[in-house]
Amino acid sequence: MQTYKHIIFDFDGTIANSVPIFLKIYNELATEKNFKLISEETIPQIRHLSYLKRAEYLGIPLYQIPFIIPVLYKKYKQNIHSLQAYEGIFDFLATLHQQGFTLDIVSSNSKDNIIQFLENQNFPYFTNIYCSENFMGKDKVLKKLLKTTGYPLKTCLYVGDENRDIEACMKINMDCGWVNWGYEDELQPQLQYYPKGHFKTVQDLLAFIKKDS
């Protein structure tokens, strides 16, 4: 039986419901830069595109991306007071902590934003927070976490909500659980058999982790 000890979480779309903030700050920037505006109805059209294809769809020149990302992080931080967690997620995380699991975060958001959100929520139980901040290298950040902490690979479960989360886990052979309450509600065909589980509620995810640990 698989024994998980270390549960590693994505942040946006897994812990925090950042869709409203993302739409607000992106559209502010898009208005300034004359990029294409998006709405909640637009998200299903672009959620399965690669980041390069998304940039093309939105009319964002590739050379501007390295300059745009820090601006988005800054705008995100300015709005973080309105960021909400998904219902029940902190009770779920507290239960895992109480039962002895190590909790970590690997995200493409900035570490400062995540720390500020967790302080606002008065939740101090994440041991490590690692951030890629480039949208392309989450597998490398997961490897860095493993190297730094010494966690055995087979004791780790990564929990995310996007196809690219699964792709990152596949690259390093890490077990992955996929939740569909975030940015993507379906998997690309080539990925649908990789996750150890597809979870619609935190209760489903908790039952899986406890069963396999």
Rank of each mutant, 00 (worst) to 15 (best):
G182Q: 00
N173A: 13
Y193L: 14
M174P: 04
Y193K: 15
W181C: 02
G177N: 05
L206A: 13
I166F: 06
Y193A: 15
I166Q: 06
N173T: 10
P195H: 05
Q192E: 13
I172V: 12
L191I: 05
R164L: 10
Q192G: 00
E186F: 09
K196Y: 06
P189F: 05
Y193C: 10
L191N: 11
L205C: 08
W178M: 12
E184S: 11
G182S: 04
Y183P: 02
D185C: 06
W178T: 04
M174Y: 01
V179G: 03
V179K: 05
V202C: 13
A207I: 10
D175G: 01
L206E: 13
Y194D: 08
A207S: 15
K200P: 00
N173E: 14
K200L: 11
Q190Y: 13
D165K: 09
M174F: 04
D165S: 10
L187C: 10
T201K: 08
E184H: 06
F208R: 00
M170V: 07
A207L: 14
P189S: 09
A168P: 01
V202K: 15
C176A: 15
V179A: 07
V179Y: 06
C169S: 07
H198A: 11
L205A: 08
F208P: 00
Q190D: 14
K171T: 11
H198S: 12
D165C: 08
E186C: 09
D204H: 09
W181M: 04
N173G: 03
L205H: 07
Q192H: 08
I172E: 05
V202M: 14
M170N: 03
Q188E: 15
W181H: 08
G197Q: 08
F208G: 01
M174W: 03
P189N: 08
V202G: 02
P189D: 12
G182R: 03
E186L: 00
D185A: 03
L206C: 08
G197F: 08
K171A: 14
Q190V: 08
Q192C: 09
P189M: 05
N173M: 04
Q203R: 11
F199Q: 02
V179S: 05
Q188H: 10
F199Y: 07
L205M: 10
G177P: 00
Q203S: 14
L206N: 09
C169K: 02
